[in-house]
Simulated assay, not measured.
Amino acid sequence: MFDIKSFYEAVSVKDAIQALVKDTDAEIISGGTDVLIRVREGKDAGRSLVSIHNLEELKGVKLLEDGNLWIGAGTSFSHITNDPLIKEYIPMLGDAVDMVGGPQIRNTGTIGGNICNGATSADSASTMWTLEADVVLEGPEGERTVPVCEFYTGPGRTVRDRCEVCKGFVIRRESFEGWTGHYIKYGKRKAMEIATLGCAVRVKLSPDKKRIEDVRLGYGVAGPTPLRCLKAEEGLRGHDINDSDAILAFGKDALTQVNPRTSWRASKEFRLQLIEELSKRALKEAIKKAGGEIDA
């Protein structure tokens, strides 16, 4: 049995917000794959839960009139992986969330919960950073949009107020048109594993597929929050895809912008080794997916 004070099934986002305002001890629950674990462990025991799990307005992926992509916060990982729009425009995100837990978790867990949980190890987080996604929140004061790079405030903490509902994510067309990417998750085992390190790289190649016009590098578990390595990105732009010195510097520059810690999963030193190596591996795979013939 879970130690839950009360459980309320919201009929709309506004209804959920009202329920949160009314009960100062209440918190949001969607798929429950994170919240119920905290309740079972006693961290959130005795609290009220407001469920948004069955709100259709929070589910699905759609292409907006302006060409941007909308991903509902209540969309499950399995749906994202198999969605035709995700497969066409940002398959990297589908690949990343397909590494979350096992099939049961992926069928129930949602991308909104994965991001709002605030964990640096979230498999969707580093990819969403390289996509420069915007987080759409609605609360008692109305709706607001927060860039994902400004969403995290610390380990397990975000700017989302307790009475706010994450409605979804907007990915601008300029962040996916002409881009390809690759995500690498390193763990001690192949399945049902929390990332020891996650590395996401996105590239935009020149028309002849020989030069890197733009690049983005993101990490999970390389610091207290997900992060981008802007210095490494700047150093690689404009270089030939087979410039081995530039690719080597790409990994070295990443080391100057991370702050991993030692945990029972891995030492800081091992994570630093992964940070440098995985950046190069993910970059090469992203270039190959973009049609570049790389031999560096």
Rank of each mutant, 00 (worst) to 15 (best):
L64R: 10
D95C: 04
L36C: 08
Y89I: 06
I80P: 04
D44F: 11
S76W: 00
E56V: 15
K62V: 00
G74N: 14
E41L: 14
S48A: 14
P84Q: 00
I90K: 04
V39E: 12
R47W: 04
G101L: 12
I71S: 04
S51R: 04
L85E: 00
D66G: 15
D44C: 02
K62T: 03
E41I: 09
I52T: 15
G101H: 12
L49D: 01
A73L: 10
D44A: 07
N54I: 05
G94F: 09
G72E: 10
V100F: 05
T75C: 05
G101W: 10
G94I: 11
K43M: 06
E88Q: 15
L36I: 03
V35H: 00
S51Q: 04
I71G: 03
S51A: 07
I105T: 13
K62Y: 01
K59Q: 14
I52F: 11
R40W: 14
T75I: 05
H79I: 13
T33K: 05
I37Y: 05
M92V: 13
A73E: 11
P91Y: 11
K62H: 02
I80G: 01
N54C: 06
D44E: 07
G94L: 09
V61F: 05
I90S: 07
D34L: 02
P84K: 01
M99W: 15
V39I: 15
